[in-house]
């Protein structure tokens, strides 16, 4: 691929991601503010957003944060919240024939939910290239890190994001993306099983088991409906 084509692909990814890159700004600000209120310095907030780069697990970590920080409990919680990434990287990994081996692993380091979902949508429609993925991931990453840093500095001035509904931006983004994966009745079975299992696990179990439970239930549902169709045919 020529340099100009690469640039065009990079710009394409950046453009596709732009709404989410804007939407992650307030979330990053809120994260930084919450972390500062838990006693983390701006440098520590910056390091956490830059090295962990997984919003869900960072917010959960702030929920259970104590001084001095207990690395074992925090690592286990991050593992649990992010266990869905195993499924996500397995799924997107089969759609990256344009990536070299090392490029694939490098891409996985930035596999946040939003980046992964947009990459999956792209792979459904056309060939996913490293340049397009970089355009998707790198600006989003930079905004997340800088917004959390800014939040840790100006945190107290922000007020409550729930009042204006901004905390709903990401559930809303995910709702739109779910609709993009709709392929008929079979998707309905996957969604229903996932929603039911996630809600049950959310009510009954502590922490973030509900995401793993919902994902597993959705996969089981698709395998069961597939088997039934084979029997009927």
């Amino acid at each position: 691929m020529k340099r100009a084509e690469k640039l065009e692909e990079f710009a394409g990814g950046m453009k596709a991601m732009a709404p989410l890159t804007v939407a992650v700004m307030p979330i990053g600000l809120v994260f930084g503010a919450v972390a500062a209120s838990k006693g983390l310095s701006s440098l520590e907030v910056l390091l956490m957003s830059a090295l962990v780069f997984a919003g869900g697990s960072q917010f959960v970590a702030m929920d259970i944060w104590k001084h001095p920080a207990s690395w074992g409990a925090l690592a286990f919680s991050a593992l649990l919240v992010n266990i869905r990434h195993v499924l996500m990287s397995a799924s997107i990994g089969t759609k990256m024939p344009a990536f070299s081996g090392p490029a694939k692993y490098a891409a996985m380091l930035l596999l946040a939910d939003e980046i992964w979902a947009m990459a999956e949508l792209r792979a459904e429609r056309t060939r996913l290239t490293p340049a397009w993925y970089a355009g998707l991931a790198i600006p989003f990453y930079c905004v997340w890190v800088l917004a959390s840093l800014a939040g840790s500095i100006v945190g107290a001035l922000l007020g409550d994001p729930n009042v204006v509904g901004l905390d709903f931006a990401f559930p809303a983004v995910f709702t739109v993306l779910v609709m993009g994966f709709w392929k008929g009745r079979e998707t309905g079975a996957v969604l229903a099983a996932s929603a039911l299992a996630a809600v049950l696990a959310h009510q009954l179990l502590p922490g973030a088991w509900y995401i793993a439970a919902g994902a597993a239930a959705g996969v089981v549902a698709t395998l069961l409906t597939g088997r039934r169709r084979e029997v009927c045919a």
Partner: peptide, 11 residues
């Protein structure tokens, strides 16, 4: 996996 994970996150 993609719809199942996203649905579980928002459910």
């Amino acid at each position: 996996i993609p719809p199942a994970v996203l649905m579980a996150v928002i459910a």
